[in-house]
């Protein structure tokens, strides 16, 4: 079920991303440091693509497939998404 793109914060997205990435890596969410590059955890480029697909699906929001390459940590990606969501909202208003 898509989650609306409004009402998110960097914190809530950090939690969502941490949980999702933990699934890919078969780790506990608490083990994912939001400031450590995902590639250092062994998240491969294929999984990084899939992650972008998940974001698209869960937030019903079209994202560049390379977003997780350009924003390689949980924190950077969460901040990027907030900006993109805000921009989309501005565009819609």
């Amino acid at each position: 079920m898509p989650v609306p793109t409004t009402g998110h914060t960097v914190e809530s997205l950090t939690t969502w991303l941490g949980e999702r990435i933990a699934l890919y890596l078969k780790r506990q969410p608490a083990e994912i440091d939001p400031t450590v590059p995902l590639a250092e955890y062994g998240l491969d480029s294929v999984a990084a693509f899939s992650l972008c697909g998940d974001i698209e699906e869960d937030f019903d929001f079209i994202l560049e497939p390379t977003a997780a390459w350009d924003y390689p940590t949980v924190q950077a990606l969460a901040e990027h998404l907030i900006k993109e969501f805000d921009a989309a909202k501005g565009g819609a208003a």
């Binding site: 999702r20 699934l23 890919y24 078969k26 998240l43 491969d44 480029s45 294929v46 999984a47 899939s50 697909g53 998940d54």
Partner: peptide
């Protein structure tokens, strides 16, 4: 597909 089935592994 489970997340781990959407990686190179």
């Amino acid at each position: 597909l489970a997340p781990e089935d959407r990686t190179a592994l």
